[in-house]
Nucleic acid binder design. Structure first.
Lengths: 333, 333
DNA sequence: ATGAAAGCGCTAACAT
DNA sequence: ATGTTAGCGCTTTCAT
């Protein structure tokens, strides 16, 4: 910057003004500085700027893993909006581990992240303390909960699971099974199971413990999950899976075991991944507009940083997509 | 830091030493500073440190998109290794657009990224200029090319495509088709098509232009690609797809059109995604250990930054996995 | 409209 | 082994 200033024959303050607010310069000055900047290929030093402004212009994103396309699209949308507004994105992975998440969070705080996008509402208590004590803006995503003390943007996970269950209840099913993702520190997974629970309870139907199996989010695990359910003394006729990946496995396994989908067993998931419409007989699922969540999260963080008051909780609407994998309950044998 | 120092009754230099190299302190001092640090919940200010050290401890990663699990696993591995060594990861997306990639690169340079992981070897010429003029360490990934002037870590894309083609040649196929991803600014996609080309050329077999279709990496597009190929006056009996996603679509479409896979047409891809072994009849594919690439890239960048000389080009071995989707060429009708 | 200069919170060279 | 202090490259008041 010093070099630019001396080459343009101006003070460094003028160069700084040119970079940050060219309008305040006289046209003459502006041209001179512009030439110098171009000639020297000057790029502002972010750390110095951050130190001086007490703002790093970086947003941190902590997500469990990056291997799910739905989640990936959320991060992509966040990155895009941030970039368009002069912010960079620091990516950190928590691997569904609260302690690791806290550690990553500390890293991001040290890196100076101005804001943080988290996933879910279940975090290490120290994480919340840390963020609040330092006044770091953050938002929980994928979850929508107006009652939460923390800002959030996402889906009504319980409600959408209920909707899926009701869809199947309407088709006459009474024997439900669930292949959930690991619920350990994953409130989204928990709420989805709870949603099914509630829909059934409302009809006086039970959801016995053995009808809920927990499996990591992989196709082969979905297969195992379905196998376990179908080997039960009384197997379900409707299986709700924690996401489309598990549902993928469930459909394949059902077919491999000789069951007709949906003739013998209906199967549904969450996400509406790319292939959900393609894999016969078509997967009934809940479409989750994750890019919208990413965009709204970015907007929430940047606007809040800009001093604007933003809504505390924002629900992103989901859509039930009925396809061939769910159908009327089989007649009682 | 000043607060910590005064609370512990030491100078700020001592606090700095405690943070960076506790061993050099006397046990007594160490304990006092530790208490103060803990009591105040002190976290070092990254920007100030970066400014002072002229090192941000951040690595930038620019990838085209984040929606492919193979790529995602590469970034995850990079992030993990970086974190374990005190580095953060700045994520930027290029959307297969060279100009956008350059812009993202400028952002990362401004953010002070000490090193950069890129994908492919085809970049905007200014990007290379920028990085070299500033002495920013970088590495191209997913591509292996000892002849490249730029450091790289990855796969022999041409060679692995050749291997897939040879596998099908061995099965007696002579009529080949290719469903490639968009080759515009994607050298990996180009090289895969070239690899098939060469394998065929060695046997004196042609690969007519109409037998190579280009489709975006989506399942539905893979279907379209296969349909196009099978509607040709002389349809292929072996179809090599640019990746598993396209192959997924190709298999579904072949089956939907009434072809037996592999009886009528053999289909293969690249990636070995989660479901490749699960989807009947099982997808023949090339397994790409992308996490290894991410780890090696991280190691390359960090070690180079540490002043160590690292190999200019590193090949990561891939594995041909034969499954049910490829079989003997059908007898000539 | 432009310049001078203080200071952001560290690290590291130097002094003790 | 510990303290003192000079920057690191910006932004931003305050003068002019």
């Amino acid at each position: 910057m010093r070099d630019v200033a001396s080459r343009a024959g101006v003070s460094i303050a003028t160069v700084s003004r040119f970079i940050n607010d060219p309008e305040t310069l006289s046209p003459d000055m502006r041209a001179r500085v512009e030439d110098a900047v171009r000639a020297l290929g000057y790029i502002r030093h972010g750390a110095a700027r951050a130190l001086s402004m007490r703002r790093s212009h970086a947003i941190g994103a902590i997500i469990p893993t990056v291997d799910n396309p739905t989640r990936a699209s959320k991060v992509a949308a966040l990155q895009k909006h941030c970039r368009e507004n002069g912010y960079n994105v620091l990516l950190a992975l928590s691997e569904y581990d609260l302690d690791l998440e806290l550690q990553q969070c500390r890293n991001l705080v040290e890196a100076g992240a101005d804001g943080l996008m988290l996933e879910g509402g279940l975090h290490h208590p120290e994480l919340y303390e840390l963020l609040e004590s330092r006044n770091i803006v953050f938002v929980n995503t994928i979850v929508y909960d107006p009652a939460s003390p923390y800002p959030n943007i996402g889906f009504d996970n319980r409600g959408m699971a209920r909707r899926l269950a009701e869809h199947l209840l309407d088709l006459g099913h009474t024997e439900f099974g669930v292949i959930s993702g690991p619920r350990g520190s994953n409130d989204r997974a928990r709420e989805r199971v709870e949603g099914v629970h509630r829909a059934l309870a409302k009809k006086g139907l039970p959801l016995p413990a053995e009808r809920v199996v927990e499996r990591p989010y992989r196709v082969a695990e979905g297969r195992l999950g379905l196998k376990t359910l179908m080997e039960l003394p009384s197997p379900p006729t409707a299986v709700i899976c924690g996401n489309d990946v598990l549902a993928f496995g469930a459909i394949l396994e059902a077919q491999a075991l000789g069951y007709d989908v949906p003739g013998d067993v209906s199967i549904a998931g969450f996400d509406d991944l790319d292939w959900a419409s393609q894999l016969p007989p078509g997967l009934t699922t809940i479409a989750l507009p994750a890019p919208k969540v990413g965009l709204l999260a970015a907007r929430y963080l940047l606007e809040t940083l800009a001093g604007k008051a933003m809504p505390h909780a924002t629900e992103v609407e989901v859509r039930l997509i009925r396809r061939g994998s769910t159908g009327p309950a089989p007649k009682r044998g």
